[in-house]
């Protein structure tokens, strides 16, 4: 299994975690992002995700490389699902393996913050009474300030 993936298939957290080499590892942190039933006071019915797939995959690979630079002993796998998802479905799985827990938690938090900054994936929210494209950050992998902000959050 690849360390990074963009897929329409339901995510399997155990398979993603099992794809990591665990030699010398003392901690594995698995983060799941789930489709929430409420957003900004609206009752959400379902979400539809789309991606610019080749660039989104490069973005995930870049995040893995950045994390390796910051935490050389951490191994990271990131799978993001696209397409239609129901409430409670996992849209993203991040597995971080490390000799010690602190770095596993930090790398996992860093990865989700960076996904929201630089990976070209968009969610369309279908709620009671309408639908709307959610727009977050202007993606710029060269923005050092954004990367520092993700690091600060990860290491808080």
């Amino acid at each position: 299994m690849n360390l990074t993936a963009i897929t329409t298939a339901p995510l399997n957290q155990q398979a993603v975690a099992a794809s990591l080499d665990t030699a010398g590892i003392g901690a594995v942190s698995v983060f799941l992002g789930l489709v929430r039933d409420r957003n900004q006071g609206r009752r959400v019915l379902h979400l539809e995700y789309e991606a610019y797939e080749p660039l989104a995959l490069r973005g995930l690979d870049l995040i893995v490389a950045e994390a390796r630079e910051q935490w050389p002993a951490v191994r990271l796998a990131i799978h993001h699902r696209i397409g239609r998802m129901a409430i409670g479905d996992a849209s993203v799985v991040i597995a971080a393996a490390s000799p010690h827990r602190a770095d596993a938690f930090a790398a996992s938090r860093y990865a989700i913050e960076r996904i929201k900054q630089i990976v070209p994936i968009w969610k369309r929210e279908y709620f009671e009474g309408g639908d709307v494209w959610i727009e977050g950050a202007t993606a710029d992998p060269d923005n050092a300030g954004a990367r520092e902000q993700a690091l600060r959050i990860a290491c808080a």
Partner: peptide, 10 residues
């Protein structure tokens, strides 16, 4: 050439 609105993955 791709034009990308602000992203909202995760």
């Amino acid at each position: 050439i791709a034009f990308l609105p602000p992203v909202s993955g995760g």
